[in-house]
């Protein structure tokens, strides 16, 4: 029982990071109907920024905000340079654009920084544990869960209480109508990318703390987790993305502790296969955002 609770807390810690990534994916999908395969590159870029900062002697307290800023800027630059030019193109084109960016960013790092993994020191408290009654939990997990909770609360406030949030939700519901109602589509989309970048930045801090390194291909893993979690949650739904992230985190930890070595490594594959099956057998239940075609 205590082991289970410990696993769940561990899973929620992991899942919180996934939830933030998934939320970023879902926000973009909401306004652009784009499955953003370039999302993980925000973490690659901010990882290298963190590495550069560490090598000039910065501490984690300075690096953390830097990661967020770099992530937001990267997100905006990618939007400006690439996605804004394919906004009205077919989803085929948009998808391949995001796929291309994913490769381009990692290829640039290989070319200019080298293929080698760059390591930096994790924060000293990363593996500290604390006891709550009979349960031993990692302080890191508690911090992640707390920060995620605050971030999600802030996101809810932004979405519910601000004009930008209203415009974003309107655009997600029906982009064309929102534009006709005077929503500035450029601003909404830029805002969505900034929000998505901020969420990825916060997730990125924890991701980098845990990993302690960065490499050109670092983006694949967070991209995959974010996309998978967003898919579990139904893609368009923001609440679903958060729940999907938490569920993915808990599933991973539980599977890893219950299954033998090789099988545990297959978690992502199993999750992916399950999602594919879900799409096959319940396409209408999953894709909540697809609108009925008018005939």
């Amino acid at each position: 029982m205590t082991e289970l609770i410990q696993n769940v807390i561990d899973g929620l810690g992991r899942g919180s990071i996934y939830a933030l990534l998934a939320l970023g994916v879902a926000v973009i999908f909401g306004v652009m109907h784009l499955l953003n395969f370039a999302h993980g590159e925000l973490i690659t870029v901010s990882g290298y920024a963190a590495y550069a900062a560490f090598s000039t002697g910065w501490s984690w307290y300075l690096v953390a905000p830097l990661v967020i800023v770099v992530s937001i800027l990267t997100s905006l630059v990618i939007e400006r340079v690439a996605f804004s030019r394919v906004r009205n193109a077919s989803s085929f084109t948009q998808l391949l654009t995001s796929f291309g960016i994913h490769f381009l960013v990692s290829a640039m790092f290989v070319m200019y920084v080298g293929a080698r993994v760059k390591t930096f020191s994790e924060p000293s408290w990363i593996s500290d544990t604390t006891a709550i009654g009979p349960i031993t939990v990692e302080v890191f997990d508690l911090v992640v869960i707390a920060v995620t909770a605050v971030t999600l609360a802030a996101t809810v406030v932004i979405l519910q209480k601000t004009m930008f949030g209203l415009a974003l939700r309107a655009a997600a519901a029906d982009f064309d109508t929102a534009r006709l109602m005077g929503v500035d589509s450029d601003r909404v989309i830029r805002g969505a990318f900034a929000l998505s970048g901020a969420l990825a930045g916060i997730a990125g801090i924890f991701w980098l703390m845990r990993a302690g390194n960065t490499a050109p291909s670092s983006g694949i893993d967070p991209m995959l987790k974010g996309v998978l979690a967003a898919l579990i949650g139904g893609l368009g739904s923001l609440r679903g993305a958060v729940l999907g992230g938490l569920a993915l985190g808990v599933a991973e930890v539980v599977l890893r502790s219950q299954l033998p070595g090789t099988a545990a490594a297959l978690t992502d594959g199993v999750v992916f296969a399950l999602i594919a099956l879900l799409f096959i057998f319940r396409p209408q239940g999953l894709i909540t955002v697809s609108h009925a075609e008018r005939v």
Partner: peptide, 11 residues
């Protein structure tokens, strides 16, 4: 890099 550019550029 050329491959990545080709993909994004053509799109």
């Amino acid at each position: 890099v050329v491959l990545g550019f080709a993909m994004v550029g053509f799109m």
